[in-house]
């Protein structure tokens, strides 16, 4: 139950890098979805990953969270190797172990636990921080009951944080779309992450909701001391809150830099904005 047995990097370089990915490649059969990508997330930063549809953004996400195993490359998070190689077989840390290390995520297509209440969705996110065993539950030992009370209280705090106070009893699937997005963030925050991965958090939102979400993400960094990796199609969001922007196209990094630099980069304009995939 303690921290997963993850090998630490031998040296102590890049101490201010939370994520360091090198030459990360993912092939699906003949298709190279992500091709030799180098990618860093400095501690405390908001970094965006943009690119046209099918560029490989979600695939890259999934390799960080352990859902996909890279075909090649290395990823370290906070000094832990997320990918290891034994022989010529690549291995990823299991998603639940990655979560325990401190990475929380949301999904491009909302994946809440539909018929659980909003509060219980958050309490599932708290799972890794609750330690009681099944026998504690069977006997309802005091430690277990104290922990349950804590999870309710903490769950309600988190509901309030994401602006869903008073809606804890509603089933996730019955919440309006925007609230579902917020609840997903709340559930991810419940795992107490150091790094929050958001896959298109403003998809399907109107401009005022989008502005609200943008402000909310920015506030999270300061309040919770988080780093954020953001996938986003809405350029206003990306340009508004990112410290760094990386642009993927056909699985390759075609540009990397500050929002202003990226915006001015002609390759980006051609590959991304030129194709009309973005709104402005």
């Amino acid at each position: 139950m303690a921290a997963a047995p993850v090998p630490r990097t031998g040296t102590q370089p890049d101490a201010d890098l939370l994520v360091k990915a090198r030459h990360v490649t993912k092939k699906f059969g003949g298709l190279t979805a992500v091709n030799a990508v180098d990618f860093d997330i400095p501690r405390g930063s908001i970094v965006s990953l943009i690119g046209p549809n099918g560029a490989g953004k979600t695939t890259f996400f999934n390799m960080i969270t352990g859902a996909y195993t890279p075909t090649a490359g290395t990823i370290t998070f906070d000094g832990h190797h997320l990918v290891t190689q034994s022989g010529n077989r690549m291995r990823s840390l299991k998603p639940h172990a990655v979560t325990e290390l401190g990475i929380g995520r949301t999904f491009q297509n909302i994946r809440l636990f539909g018929t659980m209440s909003a509060l219980d969705n958050i309490r599932v996110g708290l799972h890794v921080h609750l330690k009681s065993h099944w026998w504690d539950a069977v006997l309802r030992l005091p430690s277990m009951r104290a922990e349950e009370e804590y999870s309710i209280q903490r769950g309600e705090e988190l509901l309030e944080l994401v602006g869903l106070e008073g809606r804890g009893n509603i089933w996730a699937r019955n919440l309006p779309y925007g609230d579902q997005r917020r609840l997903e963030i709340g559930r991810a925050l419940a795992t107490n992450p150091k790094l929050l991965l958001l896959d298109e958090p403003t998809a399907g939102m109107n401009s005022s909701e989008t502005a609200e979400m943008t402000a909310f993400i920015r506030s999270l960094r300061t309040r919770l001391n988080l780093s954020v990796l953001l996938i986003e199609h809405d350029m206003r969001v990306v340009m508004g809150i990112s410290d760094r922007v990386t642009v993927l196209d056909y699985g390759e990094v075609i540009a990397e830099g500050s929002p202003a630099e990226v915006r001015a980069n002609p390759r980006v304009v051609e590959a991304y904005l030129g194709r009309g995939a973005a709104s402005n």
Binding site: P95, T99, R111, F113
Partner: peptide, 16 residues
């Protein structure tokens, strides 16, 4: 129940 509802999401929330 989380596993029943969405196994992938459950694992991503740290459930073994």
């Amino acid at each position: 129940i989380a596993i029943r509802e969405d196994e992938v999401a459950a694992e991503m929330m740290g459930i073994n």
